[in-house]
Amino acid sequence: MKLMDKLAKRLREDAANINVSVSDELDRRIEASLLAVSPEMAEQRPITPVKPPLFWWASTVTGIAAAVAVIAIMNWRAPEQPVADVPLNIVAAVPAIDLKAEAAVLTNPLQEELDKLESDLKKAEEKVRRDIGL
């Protein structure tokens, strides 16, 4: 028998010294509530029909056949064309760009603008000369 220490013994005795009683009224109340309650029943799991072994074999064989077919199709595909070799001398392969022609194309509008500005300047200079009587 487990030796009960003094604290445990006193706690037990003191708990027993708490006097409670369920009154008749509470007893009737509880009983009436319990009679009015309907317990929930455990959820019934849907019964799944047992499949005969033939179905298991048929589905297994079908699965394996499908897997084999997919593997075979993947392997029977025509090999891809090899990628053309990249020329080693890239500089030679790239067409040369006519840098001068490109520069002319780029600077032509600026040159025209400059000519216009120069002619405007000349006109303005002549006008000033006329105004001052030179």
Binding site: L26, R29, I30, E40
Partner: peptide, 18 residues
């Protein structure tokens, strides 16, 4: 305490399946 006792017993009966 009495109310909780009553509720406890009702809940216990209702969910006894668990």
């Amino acid at each position: 305490a009495e109310d909780v006792l009553q509720d406890t017993l009702i809940a216990a009966f209702r969910y006894l399946h668990s």
